[in-house]
Amino acid sequence: MYDSVILRTVARLMLPILLLLSVFMLLRGHNLPGGGFIGGLVASCGVILQMVAFGPSFARRVMPVNYLALAAFGVCFAAFWGLPALFSGLPYMTAFWIEPSIPGVGKIGTPVLFDVGVYFTVVGVTTQLALLLAEEPVLFPMPPEPPGAEPEGAPQA
């Protein structure tokens, strides 16, 4: 979109860093600032940065994910981890925890997995929204791209 060398270079470097940061934010969320919502926003910032720098079609290609499906998966995943309690006769979404905490990750339990669902939903929804807007032909009339063509200066994904 904006043919800026600085932006494109930074964006290229930032994508893996932001994705890693988002997972980090997600996992530490239960004890330190972070969590699924923040992690999801960080991850989608990474993809949206690609979109701003290289255009939506490149952003789609560099992370070939169906974000709508990802959001749907997130909702289902979050809902799913409320179910185990039902089998023990407890109310929906009662928490279960694995007792010994896993080094580097921390304690794992259904609320953490629920948070993972939130993470996926937020990534999917936010990124999908941004891409939908950027791909809107009324706003951004673009000549039909020949298939496989790379925008100028784009790195090989």
Partner: peptide, 12 residues
Amino acid sequence: GKGANVVNVILV
């Protein structure tokens, strides 16, 4: 809630 981050524990 087995978590020290109260905001997150409330959320999840």
